[in-house]
Every structure is written in C-alpha cells, then in structure tokens.
Design a protein around this nucleic acid. Structure first.
Length: 562
RNA sequence: GUCCCAGUAGCUCAGUGGAUAGAGCGCUACCCUGCGGAGGUAGAGGUCAGAGGUUCAAGUCCUCUCUGGGAUGCCA
C-alpha cells in the first residue's frame, strides 16, 4: 500500500539521520502517515518529528521538532513517488505526491481493472461472516435489512482485502419461537379445512401465516389432519421451515444478499453437538449445577456478573446451549480463523457472555467479533411506528424495496455508521429516496459510459499498448481526480479495519463529485486535441473502473444509462 | 441500581489524537447557446450536550453530570 511505502521511506530517513549523526540515537517511534484535512497541507503528512521529539525528551535530550523534521527531510531517500516535502507548523512534514507518479496510476488502474484496490492483508485467512439470522417465523422486518446489508457489504469488503469468506445464516429452527410458529401454521392449516384448532397463545397472527398454510395445503392436501396433532406438528416442522426459508431467501435476494450456508440450529442437536460442546465445557470445569439446572459459570469472566442457564430444570436446553455448540462448531470443528457476527443492539447483553464462552472453550476471544448495529426506527408523520411480527403489523424488506428500489435501500442503510440509530420516515421515503445520493453516483457512472460511447463514434478508443500520453494530465481537476482514485485501497483498508463499510458510501460520493468537477473543467472528447483527449479518455475509464468497484462492494448496480 | 450506545449546522448524518470541524437536504445569490443540468461556484448557518482532566496537540482519550435509546428472562 501507498501508506506503507511512505512509512518505510520516512523510517529509513530517520535511521539514516541517526547513522550520520544528524540525530541522536533513540528508539524508533511508529511512523504515522496521515491524510491532512486541508489540501494545502499536501497529500499526506507525518508527525514523525513530533513523536520523535517526545522520545528524545524522555531520554533526557533537548529536542526541537522542527530541527528533527529537517534532519529527516535531508535524509529522505530519492525516488519517483514523492514530488515534494515541506516542513510545516510545529514540525509536521507535508508530503506531495509526484505528478508523474499520479499520472501513471491511470495505466495501473486500467491494467488491474476490477482487481484494482484489492489488498493482500487477508491472504491465507478463512473468515466467516454470520448475519441476518432472523428467526424463521416470517418475513423480515425492515430493520433486518440493515443487518443484511451490513453483513453482505462487510463480506464483500473482506473478500477484496484478500480474505476467504463464508457467508452464513443461522436458522433458529429449534426452540420455543419456532415451535410457536409451527403451531400457528398448523392452526391456520386446519382452519383451511374447516377444522377448528385453537390458535396458540404465543403464536404468530400475521396474514402471511395463512399464506404459508395455503401453500402447504396445496402440496399436502388435508393429509396432516388425519394424524394426531403431535405427529402432525412433527411432520409440519420441515414443511413450514422450507416454506418460510424459501420466502426469506427470495426476499434477501432482492437486496442482493445471498448466503453460502443456511446453518440449522436443529442440526446441532441432531448431530449431538450440543451435548458434545457441553461435555467439553463440563470437562474443563466450566459448568455448575444449581437449583436443578445446569449453568455456564460466566461470572468467572470479566464483564459477566452472573451465570447463565444452559439446561433448564425441566431438562430442556436453552438457546444459549445451542449457541455455545454453534461457536464450538465454528471454531473447533470448522476452523474459521475469525468469525464476525452481525447483531442488533438489543443483543448487546449477549456479547460478554460469548467472550466468556470463547475463553471457556480455550479460544482467543479476539477471534470472535460482534458487529453491533442500532435499530432502524420507522417513523410516520414524525411519530414512531411500533411494529412486530407478533403483532402481525410488519414493514418488510419487500415493502420498502417495492417503494424505493434495492439500490437506494442499500446505499441509504450504508451511509450511517452502524451504531447510529436510523430514522426512516415512511411518508417521506419516496421523496427522500428521490434525492438519494446513490443516484448521484450512478448518474456519474452513466455519464462516463456515455462519454466513452461518444468517443467511440469519433474514433477515439482505449488503447492497450501502454502508449497513452498520461503526462498531459496536468489540469488541477485531472490531478484531483487522480488523487481521489488512488484512495480506493485506503478506503477498503479502513472498512476492513473498523468492520464498518459505511465509509465507502462517502468515498463513492466524493469520487463522483470529483469526477463531475473534472467533467465540467476538462472536455474529454475534443478531436482538435486528440492526444489530450486520449489521455482524458483513459482517465475517464479509470474512474469508471473505480466507481464500478466501489458500487460492487456496496452491492449497488452500476447502470450504463439511467 | 449496574452495563452498553448516542448527543456535531434548521433537518438527516460523516469525522483516523493533529493544523482553519465537513457532506447531503433546505435557504440565498450566481454559472450554463460545451461529452447526459440528476451538474458546478459562492454565501448564511456551530460555545462539537456540560464540567473537569491527560497530552506538544482533544469533537476524538479518561472521570463526573445532564438528556435520549437499549440491555439486564430457566425467551431467542
């Protein structure tokens, strides 16, 4: 990466200054390369002299940061990357990239095409991202779209950073919620044939349950009614599961979210993994018996103030038991190097417990990251609308996608940092979406495509012999665009490091804006200046590649026309 | 009670311990007989909730207070 390159150049300069005696010997500080907020401070800056001065002072020497900075500058190795450096303020070193180097990046981008911006930091690492994992009891509330989009985009970004990634949905097809759902389907199913089965008290009253029942009836007829209810429920479970999962899969696909694996909670029981994981913990002395129940001794671990039941006094395991088994399976059986779980903020209490579980299993808790995100608050006329599957009044992903389209949904959900609450006003949705910034980015992309097409009609095409006069790209708008293009890898790095891809939407907007300024100031197709036109055409193509890359990471379409 | 998250422009929100705190929308005034105007330029608009502290440097880190949301089940 460019930053790493600069970092080593300045570290070398500092060592060289120490070797020649221009600077005293002290422990090498970490060289930080930053991006200044203001353009006049250069492309990058480093505080190496300020940090070094503190180190010298601690060693008892007298140190003037500006003098240290000057010594570093004097010993900077020569090369074609840096166009100039400048000593500024209390001792910052401002770095300006060489124009010639910037211009050459057009060719680098064209050569790497869709691979441009990819990193190697994840090479050899096998990660899992587990997301959505909504209970398979009906359509997904719109808030679930945020989970889906975050997880999916994060997985995209990790792949671009060189990680091998598995995308997984954990299907909670065991336990009381799912049983209540199956019983609800059964009641609706029976009603279709005029049989009156009392609707379960904790059931799911939504109309969609009737729809599921109809679909099952269409396949099975009234066959299930000829069985005792208990047997019918056993038969119904896989049928209900299949119907609801088919719906979930289809609904998620509409916002571009697909999974490599749908992992069944029930399978953990069927394979004896829950027992195996609990035995494993028991052997390690992590379980205690009390009040007729079996507890995981979480309170031994930091940030946990109480133990947690894994086997109820009635002998039934809790969801926590299967969750332990699930993570036992992820790390010990399947061997992921790292797992990211995307959870809504209402699961926050579960986070320290999982950290405790990791340690109890003998695993490094840092290998499990929980990406928490806040809720999507649905508003209507400035009033919050409370929705729930239980109440049967849902705003689903499908509902919103029907209204505003998948691209706007994804982009909108990705412009805010995960921990911020999103307010989404249903009445304003369409209006808000029409001024959605995603269209600004897509429009710029379409405009580039249009320019390329226009150029072709003038006989101006991209060339692959490397003989592009990129040195002619000297206009401020051209150089600004070049600078913005080469930020891509840093943006991907940032998204991976912080596990929050929302900076990519901001980058996409800045990129589009920078291109629009270039478009205004620099006519691309101008056949009176064929050489300059050619250089600009390649710059436009490079921009197209980078915008397409960012949009692909975000899961947003890059349309050639709108 | 304890714990977690948030509080930044009129609104919705960005902001990596660095230099003069940003964007979109809205508002005002301009630019356009140029490749797609879904564009560009400029302006108004801020005690970064408050108070201490750490640091050469704090919107950013620490402590406390206030306000809002969430978590604190033998539910998942």
């Amino acid at each position: 990466m460019l930053k790493d390159l600069l970092q080593s150049l300045f570290a070398d300069a500092l060592i060289a200054a120490q070797t020649t005696g221009a600077l005293p010997v002290f422990d090498l500080p970490t060289v930080e390369i930053q991006r200044p907020k203001q353009a006049e401070h250069g492309d990058y800056s480093t505080n190496i002299a300020l940090v070094a001065a503190a180190a010298v002072r601690k060693a008892g020497g007298a140190a003037n940061p500006r003098q240290i900075a000057q010594a570093v500058i004097d010993h900077l190795p020569s090369g074609d990357l840096i166009g100039g450096v400048e000593l500024a303020g209390p001792g910052f070193i401002n770095i300006r990239l060489a124009d010639a180097w910037l211009q050459r990046q057009v060719l680098a981008i064209l050569a790497q095409d869709t691979a441009y911006g990819n990193l190697t930091r994840g090479a050899g690492q096998y990660w899992q991202v587990e997301y959505v994992s909504a209970n398979p009891t009906g359509p997904i509330h719109y808030g679930g779209a945020r989970n889906a989009v975050l997880g999916d985009t994060l997985a995209n970004v990790l792949e671009a950073a060189g990680y091998r990634v598995q995308r997984e949905y954990y299907v909670n097809d065991a336990g009381t919620q799912f049983e209540a759902f199956v019983a609800s389907v059964y009641a609706r199913y029976a009603a279709l044939f005029g049989r009156d089965v009392p609707f379960p008290e904790n059931g799911y009253p939504g109309d969609y349950v009737v729809d599921y029942a109809r679909r099952i009836a269409a396949e099975q007829g009234d066959a299930l009614l000829h069985l005792p209810q208990a047997d019918a429920l056993v038969r119904l479970r896989p049928l209900a599961r299949a119907v609801v999962l088919a719906d979930l899969e289809q609904e998620l696909k509409r916002i571009g979210v697909e999974f490599d694996a749908w992992f069944s909670e029930q399978s953990l029981y069927d394979q004896g993994l829950v027992q195996q994981a609990l035995d494993y913990l028991d052997a390690r002395g992590e379980l205690v018996r009390r009040d007729g129940a079996v507890w995981f001794a979480a309170s031994r671990y930091p940030k946990n103030d109480k133990d947690e039941v894994v086997i109820r006094s009635n002998g039934m395991p809790t969801y926590f038991a299967s969750d332990i088994a699930y993570h036992y399976d992820k790390f010990i059986r399947r061997g992921f190097d790292h797992v990211v779980n995307v959870w809504a903020v209402d699961h926050q209490g579960h986070v320290p417990r999982m950290a405790a579980v990791m340690q109890a299993l003998g695993l490094d808790p840092r290998r499990l990251t929980i990406l928490m995100y806040d809720l999507v608050k649905l508003m209507r006329n400035g009033q919050e609308v409370k929705l729930s599957k239980r109440a049967g009044n849902l705003i689903t992903i499908n509902d919103v996608v029907d209204e505003v389209g998948a691209d706007a949904v994804r982009f909108n959900l990705l412009t805010r940092s995960p921990e911020s609450t999103i307010e989404f006003d249903l009445d304003l949705a369409v209006a808000q979406i029409n001024e959605n910034p995603v269209f600004y980015v897509q429009y710029s992309y379409a405009r580039i495509c249009s320019i390329l097409a226009r150029a072709a009609t003038e006989g101006l095409t991209l060339r692959d012999d490397g003989a592009v006069p990129v040195h002619m790209l000297t206009h401020p708008a051209e150089l600004a665009l070049l600078r913005k293009l080469i930020e891509l890898e840093e943006q991907i790095e940032l998204a991976v490091e912080k596990l929050s891809p929302h900076n990519l939407t901001h980058y996409a907007l800045e990129l589009a804006r920078t291109f629009n300024i270039f478009y205004r100031d620099c006519k691309v197709v101008d056949m009176e200046h064929p050489e300059l036109s050619s250089a600009r055409l390649h710059l436009a193509q490079a921009t197209r590649i980078v915008i397409a890359k960012v949009l692909a990471l975000l899961g947003v379409r890059a349309p050639e026309s709108m």
